[in-house]
Simulated scan of single mutants.
Amino acid sequence: MAPRSLDVLLLLCTVCCGCVMSLELVPSDQKKVEKPEGDRVTLECKYTVGPQDTGALDIDWTLVAADTQLEDQQIIMFSGGMPYIVNDGLRDRVHFTSSDPSDGDASIEIINLKSADTATYQCKVKKPPGTQNRKISLAVYIKPAKTRCFVEGAQKIGMDINLKCASSDGTAPLTYLWEKVSGQKLLPKGSVADEATGVLMVKNASQEYSGTYKCLARNRVGTDECMVVLNVSPPTNVGGIVAGAIIGTLLSLGLVGLLVYFCCKKQKEKKYEKEVQHEIREDVAPPKSRTSTARSYIGSNHSSLGSLSPSNIDGYSKSQYNKVPNDDLERPPSQVPNFVLPKYHGLTVV
């Protein structure tokens, strides 16, 4: 019985030693990995082989199908001492981290991650008779981006105001945190912040609530922020504005009325001046013709000649007679009036 027990013990030791020395994957706590879009990730898969693992080495990375009825998709493989990239969607973005995966490191790196890369990845190492595999879950998130802050509601004392924050990009779930970054740096008393919707509700606003507020949007892989200025002011005096508008309108109408009055007055004055000038012209007698003037002048001289003596005829003829207008003297003989000079003591005046 003793020899048989010893043989059994030796056999068990041999089997156990063979198990320890066969192909094994190095333990890793990398079960689930979360990364932001555009980043890179290393999926670990290191291994050791035993003396009895003498077969050809094959390393195969696949995308595990979410539906068990579908086949897994190959990504990259190492066979016959050469690496091969199989998946076209990852052709330019995946590679083995080691230049020689046969040295015990079958890890891969994926660069420029996309949200579509979210999946479960499996590393399978075969070196007959040993075979081992490991699954790693990868989640690719989009960081919050294009976050916008704004104020909703009238920024007046006593009013209810909402400060809102929202990110256009980012993988859910997103959370929003508000803080005041100016003044006392404390959120208004009684305000309520909703982390899920990004709304900060401010009740019965006062001027001390004025200041700069910052909103921080975040998810599992990143953050983004924005700022907004709150300026709480006294309510507007609506009655004063209306009264001012009415007064301004009345003043404008009064000014227009004065302009119209002066324009009309000016037009009347001009019209009156024209009428006066016209009446004066009608009252003035027309000037006498030069012919009648000349005749009357000559007739008056003729009557005055009766009292002239021969001694003053020369002076008279040189002074008084010469006052007859020249144009009458230049008339043709047919138009000159005929008159006979009187005789004085046997002399005829010429």
Score class of each variant (00 low, 15 high):
residue 5 S to D: 12
residue 6 L to R: 12
residue 8 V to Q: 13
residue 10 L to W: 10
residue 11 L to R: 12
residue 15 V to N: 08
residue 21 M to L: 14
residue 22 S to Y: 02
residue 25 L to C: 06
residue 35 K to L: 12
residue 40 R to I: 06
residue 41 V to Q: 00
residue 41 V to A: 02
residue 44 E to F: 03
residue 46 K to P: 03
residue 47 Y to V: 01
residue 47 Y to K: 13
residue 48 T to I: 09
residue 48 T to V: 08
residue 53 D to I: 06
residue 54 T to Q: 11
residue 60 D to Q: 14
residue 62 T to F: 05
residue 64 V to M: 04
residue 69 Q to Y: 09
residue 71 E to L: 06
residue 72 D to C: 07
residue 75 I to W: 03
residue 78 F to P: 00
residue 86 V to N: 04
residue 90 L to E: 02
residue 91 R to V: 10
residue 92 D to P: 13
residue 93 R to T: 07
residue 102 S to Y: 10
residue 104 G to L: 11
residue 105 D to T: 06
residue 106 A to R: 14
residue 107 S to W: 01
residue 108 I to E: 01
residue 109 E to C: 11
residue 113 L to D: 06
residue 114 K to A: 05
residue 115 S to G: 08
residue 116 A to S: 15
residue 117 D to G: 03
residue 119 A to C: 13
residue 120 T to H: 03
residue 120 T to R: 09
residue 120 T to Q: 07
residue 124 K to M: 06
residue 124 K to A: 13
residue 125 V to W: 04
residue 126 K to R: 15
residue 130 G to T: 01
residue 132 Q to A: 11
residue 132 Q to F: 02
residue 133 N to K: 15
residue 135 K to A: 10
residue 136 I to V: 15
residue 136 I to L: 11
residue 141 Y to M: 08
residue 143 K to Q: 11
residue 144 P to N: 04
residue 148 R to F: 03
residue 153 G to Q: 02
residue 157 I to W: 00
residue 157 I to A: 00
residue 160 D to Q: 11
residue 162 N to K: 15
residue 162 N to G: 04
residue 163 L to S: 00
residue 163 L to H: 06
residue 164 K to F: 02
residue 166 A to R: 14
residue 167 S to D: 02
residue 167 S to K: 09
residue 168 S to F: 03
residue 170 G to E: 02
residue 171 T to D: 09
residue 177 L to P: 00
residue 179 E to M: 07
residue 182 S to M: 09
residue 186 L to V: 14
residue 188 P to D: 04
residue 188 P to A: 07
residue 189 K to T: 12
residue 189 K to V: 12
residue 191 S to Q: 08
residue 199 V to C: 00
residue 199 V to A: 00
residue 202 V to C: 02
residue 203 K to S: 07
residue 203 K to I: 00
residue 205 A to H: 05
residue 209 Y to R: 10
residue 220 R to F: 05
residue 221 V to G: 08
residue 227 M to Y: 12
residue 227 M to H: 14
residue 229 V to S: 05
residue 231 N to I: 05
residue 232 V to L: 08
residue 238 V to Q: 08
residue 238 V to K: 13
residue 239 G to F: 07
residue 242 V to G: 01
residue 242 V to S: 04
residue 243 A to H: 07
residue 246 I to R: 06
residue 248 G to S: 13
residue 251 L to E: 00
residue 256 V to E: 02
residue 256 V to P: 00
residue 259 L to T: 06
residue 260 V to P: 05
residue 264 C to F: 15
residue 265 K to Y: 10
residue 266 K to S: 12
residue 270 K to F: 01
residue 271 K to L: 01
residue 275 E to P: 06
residue 275 E to M: 05
residue 279 E to Q: 14
residue 282 E to R: 15
residue 282 E to C: 11
residue 287 P to L: 02
residue 289 S to R: 12
residue 290 R to T: 04
residue 296 S to Y: 09
residue 297 Y to C: 00
residue 297 Y to K: 13
residue 301 N to S: 12
residue 304 S to L: 14
residue 305 L to E: 06
residue 306 G to N: 15
residue 309 S to Y: 09
residue 312 N to A: 01
residue 313 I to G: 04
residue 316 Y to I: 05
residue 316 Y to P: 03
residue 317 S to N: 12
residue 318 K to N: 08
residue 319 S to H: 06
residue 323 K to F: 07
residue 324 V to W: 05
residue 327 D to N: 13
residue 332 P to D: 07
residue 333 P to V: 12
residue 334 S to L: 08
residue 337 P to M: 08
residue 342 P to M: 03
residue 345 H to S: 15
residue 347 L to K: 15
residue 347 L to A: 10
residue 349 V to T: 11
